[in-house]
Amino acid sequence: MTTMVIKYVWEVPVRVAHWVNFLAIVILSVTGYYIGAPKTLGVDPSRFVMGWVRFIHFVAAYAFTVSVLSRIYWAFVGNSYSSWRAYVPWLTSEGRYRMLETFRYYTFMSRKVPHVTGHNALAGATYSLVYCLFLVQVATGFALYAEHAPASVMHKLTGWLFLLFSNQGMRLTHHLLMWLFVAFAIHHVYSAWLMDVKERGGVMSGIFGGYKSVPEKE
């Protein structure tokens, strides 16, 4: 049996960004769903239900945006496990081999657990896609947010998106991406749980404390 050593893998900014993203996505999904398909919750006209829901949505949106951008910044200054290189495994032949290896393991074609200290190759590639979708979600969100003020700075920054999306298409995209993130969250928690069991690397606690168990040879 392989001897395991404890290693500091996930630095503070990585963990903070992860949990801010988590909280923001939960809040944004719940409030966003209400904004898209509201129910009459205000018992009298003096209430401010939609007002508060939208306020919370916008505050969470700003927190999410800052978190996503900070994490992208950290991909260039953080340690090797959080580096952008971990998210583009398809660029190197070794990365492509590792992606295939992980895919074979996930689809029960191989019994070899692809133990890696940071993200496995398939996970890294998935996070690239998810972060691209995050950026689309942020951009479409701010474009919709700025729609009320055509002369504003925000509208000048995001208004060009209406050349890519129709007015309704923008709303549909923003809404459907939310569901994709729900699906991603299910996959993400399950995969982490699976690897925690099979890899025995403490990937679940790693995102809280930053430490993972890795085979001694690494």
Binding site: R111, L180, A183, I186, W193
Partner: peptide, 27 residues
């Protein structure tokens, strides 16, 4: 969207059952 979420959950639940029954995966 709800269909995608449910299908994902079902797929991973099935994967989880198979994984739990599979012994002998290691490095």
């Amino acid at each position: 969207g709800a269909g995608i979420a449910v299908a994902t959950a079902a797929a991973f639940a099935a994967h989880g059952v198979v994984s739990a029954l599979r012994k002998g995966d290691d490095q």
